[in-house]
Amino acid sequence: MKKTYLIDLDGTMYRGTLLIEGAMHFVHELIKRKEEFYFLTNNAKRTKRQNVEHMERMGYCGIKEEHFFTSAMAAAIYARKHYEGRKAYYIGQDGLREALEDEGFTIDDTNADFVFVGLDTSGTYEKYSKALKLLLNGAKLIGTNDDRILAQPDGFSIGNGSVVAMFEYATQQKSPKIGKPHDTILEEALDFLHKKKEDVILIGDNLETDILLGVRNQVETIFVTTGVHQREDIDRLGIHPTHIVDDLQELL
């Protein structure tokens, strides 16, 4: 039985706006062969349509909205399943708003039951302070993921996890762990896609998120050295993937 690929985006398919050419050839071949794949990403910024357009601008073809499962989707689904209340304030961008609205949440910046925190590249002190007030008044903190840093064409930028940690420190709350490498995103993705762990293979560039998620859940993994980590980091971190490639075309 052929397995379904769950593929990371940042550092695996592209770095920021810089295309990783071997990754594009790999995905195009999967489409040609009619092999099943989805993008499992901690990136909560974009809507599903924006994710398609972002990849199309780099040259990807055949990508559809249903190919994406994001940490924003996982966070909204998890909160709906596990907590009462449907009023939410959010730090984030269109992708997080879309995910919240899809799950029946109403956006409320005065009397919120939740403060969701996803990466917001236009985040301001004012936004953070408003979120803090809501959290101190009893709103529940929900971080979409705890990525420390993100791969960019010229290096790295601050990840959402660093922002979530700021709110945890300020409020003495703890966010549930949603995004990779935590089990929640995989459990919610498998439920959403009607798959089991043995049906999928995780592909990613980050040993501490993509690969560790697989290791923790006994899921087959493919580590590609195009993003955050390199081969020498495997022993340093003690996180061992099932397979290692320097270019996803090697899998073809």
Rank of each mutant, 00 (worst) to 15 (best):
L132I: 09
I201S: 09
Q218V: 05
F69C: 02
L213H: 03
L136Y: 12
P153Y: 02
K64V: 10
D109K: 04
E21H: 12
F26C: 10
A44P: 11
K130N: 03
K133N: 15
Y5G: 06
D94A: 15
D246G: 13
S71D: 06
M58D: 02
Q172L: 15
D235I: 11
K45S: 15
D108Q: 00
K32E: 14
G227Y: 04
L18W: 03
K87G: 01
D233R: 03
R46G: 02
Y89N: 00
Y14E: 01
K32S: 12
F223Q: 07
F116S: 02
G155M: 05
T221W: 09
G123E: 05
Y169S: 15
N111C: 08
R49P: 01
K34D: 15
H25S: 13
K64N: 12
G159M: 10
L134W: 02
A75T: 04
T225H: 11
Q218Y: 06
A44D: 05
R231P: 05
E126I: 01
I239N: 03
F223V: 11
Y90L: 14
H28G: 15
V219Q: 01
G16D: 03
D109V: 01
E65T: 05
E187N: 13
M166Y: 12
R15Y: 01
D191A: 14
M58A: 06
S122F: 07
G155Y: 02
N137S: 14
Q93S: 10
I107A: 06
G92C: 10
K127W: 00
T41R: 00
N206I: 08
E35Y: 08
A72C: 05
V215W: 05
G104W: 06
I201P: 06
I63P: 02
L30E: 08
I178L: 12
I20Y: 06
I234D: 05
Q173Y: 09
A74C: 07
A151Q: 07
R86V: 06
R15P: 00
I185F: 11
G118D: 07
F114R: 03
A99R: 00
G143P: 04
V164L: 13
P241Y: 07
L100E: 01
F156S: 04
I222Y: 15
Y83V: 10
G104P: 00
G214Q: 07
A112I: 00
G62D: 05
A189V: 08
G62F: 04
N206C: 13
L119A: 08
I142A: 11
H54I: 02
N111E: 11
P241T: 09
E250F: 10
K3H: 09
D109L: 02
M1A: 12
A88F: 02
G161Y: 04
F39C: 09
L186V: 08
K2W: 04
Q230V: 15
K3C: 10
A99P: 00
L202A: 07
V163Q: 08
E65P: 01
G59Y: 05
R86N: 14
L186C: 07
L207I: 12
I31V: 13
A72R: 00
D109Y: 01
I222N: 14
Y125K: 00
L19R: 00
I149Y: 08
S122E: 11
D247Y: 10
L136N: 13
Q152T: 13
R49T: 10
L119T: 08
